[in-house]
Amino acid sequence: MSSSFYTRKGSGAPWEDQVGYSRAVKAGNIIEVAGTTATGINAYEQTKAIILKAKDALQPLGASLDHVVRTRMYCTDISEWEAIGKAHGEFFKDIKPVTTMVEVAALIDKELLVEIEFTAILPHETN
């Protein structure tokens, strides 16, 4: 679904229709990627998988991780900040977006340790 100003990209997850959201929305030259999670054995692996999911969401909208200007990281255990930060740094060490990391009481599933939102800005509006 898109209009002249908004382009929405879903991931195919069944709850997108149930909850009423898109994985990513492009408005002009700004792309917002919804809070993204992944399963995995630890916070480091989950963070890596989340960033790869965001990369996949950005690509069809004409963007890459190089266009990310902000990340917001939510974790269920702030003592895992180094592992989360290490994974984030593997992708963003040269890009260096503005970022926030906060501890939250819980995510939607107990197995989820990290959730990340992404904002990307393209140098100019694209179709």
Score class of each variant (00 low, 15 high):
Thr47Ser: 08
Thr47Cys: 08
Thr47Asn: 04
Lys48Glu: 13
Ala49Trp: 10
Ile50Val: 12
Ile51Glu: 03
Leu52Cys: 11
Leu52Thr: 04
Lys53Ser: 11
Lys53Tyr: 13
Lys55Thr: 07
Lys55Arg: 13
Lys55Phe: 08
Asp56Pro: 06
Asp56Glu: 13
Asp56Tyr: 11
Ala57Tyr: 02
Ala57Asp: 06
Ala57Glu: 00
Ala57Phe: 04
Pro60Asp: 06
Pro60Met: 05
Pro60Glu: 03
Pro60Arg: 07
Pro60Phe: 05
Pro60Val: 06
Leu61Ser: 02
Leu61Tyr: 01
Leu61Lys: 00
Gly62Thr: 01
Gly62Pro: 02
Gly62Ser: 07
Ala63Pro: 02
Ser64Tyr: 02
Asp66Cys: 08
His67Asp: 12
His67Asn: 15
His67Ser: 06
Val68Lys: 01
Val68Met: 07
Val68Asp: 00
Val69Asp: 15
Val69Asn: 14
Val69Glu: 15
Arg70Lys: 14
Arg70Val: 03
Thr71Phe: 01
Thr71Met: 11
Arg72Leu: 05
Arg72Gly: 05
Met73Ser: 09
Met73Lys: 07
Tyr74Leu: 15
Tyr74His: 11
Cys75Gly: 12
Cys75Asp: 09
Cys75Ile: 15
Cys75Lys: 04
Thr76Ile: 04
Thr76Leu: 03
Asp77Ser: 13
Asp77Arg: 10
Asp77Pro: 05
Ile78Ser: 06
Ser79Thr: 15
Glu80Asn: 13
Glu80Val: 08
Glu80Tyr: 03
Trp81Ser: 07
Trp81Arg: 15
Glu82Ile: 11
Glu82Lys: 15
Glu82Ala: 14
Ala83Trp: 06
Ile84His: 02
Gly85Gln: 10
Gly85Arg: 13
Gly85Glu: 06
Lys86His: 12
Lys86Arg: 14
Lys86Ser: 12
Ala87Cys: 06
Ala87Pro: 00
Ala87Leu: 05
Ala87Trp: 01
Ala87Ser: 04
Ala87Lys: 00
Ala87Asp: 01
His88Thr: 04
His88Gln: 11
His88Lys: 11
Gly89Thr: 07
Glu90Asp: 14
Phe91Gly: 02
Phe91Thr: 00
Phe91Tyr: 09
Phe92Glu: 04
Phe92Asp: 00
Phe92Met: 10
Phe92Gly: 01
Phe92Ile: 03
Lys93Trp: 15
Lys93Ala: 13
Asp94Gly: 08
Ile95Asn: 09
Ile95Val: 13
Ile95Gly: 11
Lys96His: 06
Lys96Asp: 09
Lys96Trp: 07
Lys96Met: 09
Pro97Ile: 00
Pro97Trp: 02
Val98Gly: 11
Val98His: 10
Val98Met: 10
Val98Glu: 15
Thr99Gln: 12
Thr99Ser: 14
Thr100Glu: 13
Thr100Met: 10
Met101Phe: 10
